[in-house]
């Protein structure tokens, strides 16, 4: 088999995942897209491992490790997302802008506390 097939497939998968990470608003969908990117990397690793016939099989071992790390990542990531959702009633990435730099004369919430006027209501809703 030509190495180009898996390599190109991995590159395209990676790009698709990249698009998902950048364009998705829901944090869980972002995490899913990250998984896609990791899979693309794994595919590359396996393909090159098979091509090189590495005696240590570094590619496959690393793939296993990446899968394990991805599992840990998704566990922690989802826990965080759920926590965010419970606290704010939303898991939209582009509304989590507490670290935004507000201008010196910007009266809008100087502590960067909330994410819009609807946040308290949604929070109350989530708590109910």
């Amino acid at each position: 088999m030509h190495l180009a097939y898996p390599a190109v497939l991995a590159a395209l998968l990676f790009s698709v995942g990249l698009y998902g990470v950048l364009a998705r608003r829901n944090a869980i969908l972002v995490l899913m897209s990250v998984e896609l990117m990791l899979n693309a990397v794994n595919l590359n690793l396996v393909a090159f491992d098979v091509w090189l016939r590495d005696t240590l099989h570094a590619g496959q071992a690393l793939t296993l490790f990446v899968i394990v790390v991805a599992a840990a990542e998704i566990g922690i990531g989802l826990a965080i997302v759920l926590l965010v959702y419970r606290n704010r009633g939303s898991s939209d990435v582009d509304r989590l802008t507490d670290l935004a730099e507000h201008g010196p004369h910007d009266p809008h919430d100087p502590q960067g506390e909330g994410d819009g006027p609807s946040a308290p209501e949604e929070k109350a809703e989530a708590a109910a």
Binding site: V8, L18, L22, R24
Partner: peptide, 26 residues
């Protein structure tokens, strides 16, 4: 609202990355 506002930028970056990677790999 499944997609955020920077779809266009995301698409541009993704296509550019895909083009670059495919070109280099091939």
């Amino acid at each position: 609202d499944a997609d955020s506002g920077n779809r266009i930028a995301a698409l541009a970056v993704a296509v550019a990355a895909a083009g670059t990677l495919v070109w280099v790999v091939v």
